[in-house]
């Protein structure tokens, strides 16, 4: 490692932050691009399972709130891809790599949605899991990314409200509606427990080394359980994991080992909806290619 690189590592490890125009080691830039690009991909792919429900939302207020939520996600991917672009990878290239399967996106966006219960559980719990990771990124060593995270976390907080409201309203409804919520929770619990990733010791995690992330995967999962399991239980819902309990002495949650093989399988392009959603992206890109050509030609 060069002296300059050594100095850089010490700088970020002591809490220092880096701007786009600063010198940075190639490894750092490469890891940043990979990590932030996957975040952008996830926001963009997160649009697809929910946009299917905009048409079906059962009241005007829900329709508006869901449209606004999906809009926020498209907006987040714009913010995030801009950060990636300034690091040297153009948005168009990110989109190409996404469609070709070269880059990844978060596990939860590879699964189907079946009912309005899924819409509530996604907005409430998937967004809650996401906001935990994103809040930790407010301290990311790469300052332009950390700064946009402020806006992203702020907007996500409304999504959680919307989701919780949808779930609460259904839990106050008919037995059939309550069942829709429980079924959705059963479907999403596995992916939610996988969401924050394998428990890598932070010493082995290059993301932690460069202070791109400052929170361990397991720590994020514990935080999620701590914040949300009591909220789930108090509604009379059952978490589909017989092992789940909090050890009051250590303050830590015990749970069945998440299915890491499934996580790996899903994020490498084999989720139940992966190919269909990528295909939709590919087609919509193809269909609108002429528009981008005209607009960019006129801008040049």
């Amino acid at each position: 490692m060069s002296a300059r690189e050594q100095e850089f590592v010490e700088y970020v490890q002591s809490g220092g932050q880096v701007e786009a125009t600063d010198w940075m080691p190639d490894d750092y830039r490469r890891l940043l691009i990979k990590f932030i690009e996957m975040h952008g991909n996830s926001e963009l792919m997160g649009v697809l399972p929910e946009r299917e429900w905009i048409l079906r939302a059962p009241t005007l207020q829900r329709k508006l709130a869901l449209t606004a939520k999906v809009q926020d996600e498209a907006g987040h991917s714009q913010l995030i891809y801009r950060v990636v672009e300034d690091l040297g990878k153009p948005r168009e290239e990110c989109l190409e790599d996404l469609i070709s399967g070269k880059s990844k996106f978060h596990n939860v966006f590879h699964y189907p949605t079946f009912t309005w219960g899924d819409v509530g559980v996604i907005a409430w719990l998937v967004d809650a899991a996401a906001i935990i990771s994103q809040k930790a990124l407010l301290k990311c060593s790469y300052a332009p990314y950390a700064r946009i995270m402020k806006k992203i976390c702020w907007e996500e907080s409304f999504h959680i409200l919307h989701g919780r409201d949808v779930v609460l309203t259904m839990m106050l409804g008919t037995d059939e509606q309550r069942e829709l919520v429980q079924e959705a929770l059963n479907r999403w619990w596995g992916p939610l427990m996988q969401f924050h990733g394998n428990p890598i010791p932070s010493g082995d995690d290059p993301m932690f080394h460069w202070r791109i992330k400052s929170q361990g995967n397991d720590e994020a999962r514990q935080q999620f359980l701590d914040g949300y399991v009591p909220q789930i239980w108090e509604l009379g819902l059952t978490v589909p994991d017989p092992e789940l309990r909090k050890d009051e002495e250590t303050g830590r949650w015990h749970f069945s080992e998440p299915d890491w093989a499934e996580l790996k399988h899903v994020v490498t392009g084999h989720g139940p909806k992966t190919q269909e959603r990528l295909e939709l992206r590919r087609i919509s890109r193809e269909e609108t290619e002429w528009v981008r050509k005209i607009v960019l030609a006129k801008a040049a």
Binding site: Q61, L64, A65, F158, L161, H162, M171, L172, L235, G236
Partner: peptide
């Protein structure tokens, strides 16, 4: 619907 005041969860939460 995209502001905090669009959601009043308190009453619903108590009922639930």
């Amino acid at each position: 619907y995209h502001r905090v005041d669009g959601y009043s969860l308190k009453v619903k939460l108590k009922e639930a």
